[in-house]
Write a protein that binds this DNA or RNA. Structure first.
Length: 298
DNA sequence: AGCGGTCAAGTTGAT
DNA sequence: ATCAACTTGACCGCT
């Protein structure tokens, strides 16, 4: 059966993940900084459990965890090791409780490191900081039982084949906790499924198929064919992305996401597949509820 | 309590 | 040249 995934936050449920700013923290003493960060990490761990409970109670089988779950974790001035925060044992325990809940109720969890993670960059420092961020998210992934760290292929820099070579080389050097969770996703500007399928085959990395991106940046593959080819890259339950354009498919910009999913944007074949489909819709849990109702699943 | 300016980071393409 | 968009608005300081 298909399962739907909720991305990062809620529209109506009072479940909020907290973060902070470097400017605010840098005005405080070292001790105050660590205390605040510790407090936020624990709040976020507790809220993650609430998020998973909400999913379980509402037939949502997957939750994407936002990249700032440990705020400023790899910041150049304020980055920290979790062990250096007061109460780190309690924080880790709280995350591990999320992992136990995830296993018990079969709620999948994933990470989608943000746009600053660029493994194809020609700038060594960008790649170095990207890897540091992936390692941080892999550490949390281990605690919470997340099996996906999903990234885009990054920039082209005027020469796609060179960019891909840098990407491949970097992926091959990644530490195991990152490597075994890493996935690549087609984007809506630079890398289509056609571009990424051979890369994923080379690296033995699954391809997260985003059908909305594919419609914005098409290639010679039909949606059905891309679905089939991407499915085969997976050694575990396949993960796909779905969204609808805010202003329709005739608008000048079709990249923006709508509050809800138009069921006409759902590839019909997906419904009968054993896959996870993360729903990228601004209305969040309300959009999933409506989608399942429209599909007569609720 | 409410509001506006600001927030770590990369890259692209529309304007 | 500027800026929105991207997986996501939230935080903080002021009134």
């Amino acid at each position: 059966m298909i399962r739907f995934g909720l991305c990062c936050i809620f529209r109506e449920q009072p479940i909020k993940f907290r973060t902070t700013t470097a400017a605010f923290l840098l005005k405080r003493s070292n001790e105050e900084q660590r205390n605040r960060l510790s407090e936020l990490c624990l709040i976020n761990a507790d809220n993650l459990l609430k998020a998973l409970e909400y999913c379980q109670h509402n037939k949502i089988g997957d939750f994407r965890i936002n990249s700032q779950i440990l705020p400023l974790k790899t910041h150049p001035d304020l980055g920290y090791d979790i062990r250096d925060l007061p109460g780190s044992d309690q924080i880790i325990q709280a995350f591990k409780a999320c992992g136990e809940y995830s296993r018990k109720y079969n709620i999948r969890t994933t990470f989608h490191p943000d746009q600053f993670i660029v493994l194809s960059s020609p700038y060594p420092d960008v790649v170095r900081r990207s890897i540091a961020d992936l390692e941080y998210q892999a550490q949390v992934a281990q605690w919470v039982n997340a099996d996906v760290l999903n990234i885009h292929a990054g920039g082209v820099y005027g020469d796609k084949s060179s960019a891909v070579k840098r990407l491949v080389h970097t992926v091959e050097t990644l530490p195991d906790p990152v490597r075994k969770r890493l996935t690549l996703e087609n984007d809506d500007r630079s890398y289509s499924p056609r571009d990424l399928l051979p890369v994923c085959a080379d690296l033995n990395v699954p391809l997260v198929y985003d059908v909305h991106h594919h419609r914005c940046l098409p290639d010679d593959l039909s949606i059905e064919k891309a679905t089939e080819r991407c499915l085969k890259t997976w050694n575990r339950e396949p993960l796909f992305h779905l969204s609808s354009p805010k202003d329709g498919w005739q608008a000048s910009n079709t990249r923006k996401h709508h509050d809800y999913i138009d069921i006409n944007d759902m590839p019909p074949g997906w419904l009968s597949m054993d896959i996870t489909v993360e729903v990228e819709a601004k209305a969040k849990e309300l959009a999933i509820e409506k989608l399942m109702a429209d599909l007569k699943m609720a």
